[in-house]
């Protein structure tokens, strides 16, 4: 079990004012059996006409719209999550899992990915064991390189290059697991220490969803904070918007997840105390 202090900040600056801006953000972690969100707050700018709801997957999202001209769009969410409370989370009944078996725009395999699947000798075992085998097989061939793929790269395209980031690792893994008939889903979230948002997958086995992180080749236990899940990246878009204006936009995202260390050393105590005061005053 770990106590993780997280902060997700997104800033989009427009070089000239935009109007009629509609946006949806999906960046608030939800408590489940594996993680408990102990405290959090969210700040969104512009803030007029802001609504909150849950989507069909149960993810929390905020949506809003503003007419007024503005140069800045900002989302900051921060809080404390307790992770590693359980290994998995409860899954829906088997007959409801079909949507996580079908390939999507992002996961649809091409001939090369199908051939790779056909060449893999997946040993008999549970869904989780098979998925772990698939994860290792991907990692042998695929390298983490940022900048070669983008948000619209599909599993097949990334596989062709054998390079990519967490989103690509996850889509390839989903594609292969679905070919193997294993219900699996895409997860967007945050990882301890990382500077960007993260993605991994969840595998269904015996009525439970278990997380596997193909980018790091690990199980998802206490270092991950989950934000949302869906069939692929598209269902978990952290931010999307439409606006009127010819502005160029520059976007910056910063994510930090730090383990909250219990007060142990005397010298540090005061510092921590100040920190927690800050947190409570901004709540």
């Amino acid at each position: 079990m770990k106590k993780l202090k997280f902060r997700y900040a997104l800033r989009i600056e427009f070089d000239m004012p935009v109007t009629q801006h509609s946006f949806t953000v999906r960046c608030l972690p939800v408590s489940d059996e594996r993680q408990a969100i102990l405290q959090q707050n969210i700040h969104i700018l512009p803030k007029e006409f802001l609504s909150e709801n849950r989507d069909s997957f149960g993810n929390i999202y905020f949506f809003g719209r503003t007419e007024a001209p503005h140069n800045l769009f900002e989302v900051v969410t921060e809080g404390i999550a307790q992770t590693g409370l359980a290994k998995g989370t409860k899954a829906e009944e088997e007959y409801r899992l079909g949507m996580f078996l079908g390939q999507t725009f992002y996961t649809k395999p091409d001939e090369a990915l199908k051939a790779f699947f056909d060449g893999m000798k997946i040993p008999a075992g549970t869904r989780l064991q098979k998925s772990q085998f698939i994860m290792e097989a991907i990692r042998e061939k695929f390298a983490y390189v940022s900048g070669v793929t983008n948000i619209s790269t599909t599993a097949a395209q990334a596989w062709k290059m054998k390079q990519g980031v967490c989103q690509d690792y996850s889509h390839i893994m989903l594609s292969l697991c679905r070919m193997a008939g294993i219900p699996c889903r895409y997860v967007a979230g945050m990882l301890i220490g990382e500077g960007l948002s993260h993605a991994w997958v969840e595998i269904e086995e015996d009525g439970m969803w278990y997380g596997l992180d193909p980018t790091n080749g690990t199980e998802v236990l206490e270092d991950h904070i989950k934000i949302s899940h869906g069939r692929d990246y598209e269902d978990c878009l952290i931010n999307q918007g439409v606006f009127t204006g010819l502005a160029k936009q520059s976007q910056s995202i910063s994510v930090s997840v730090m383990e909250e260390v219990e007060e142990k050393k005397e010298g540090k105590e005061k510092h921590d105390h100040i920190n927690s005061q800050c947190t409570s005053s901004s709540r």
Binding site: S56, G98, M99, L101, G102, G230, R231
Partner: peptide
């Protein structure tokens, strides 16, 4: 689920 008319958003 393979039908293009099925929309998971409507679940």
């Amino acid at each position: 689920y393979a039908s293009s008319g099925y929309l998971a958003q409507c679940e």
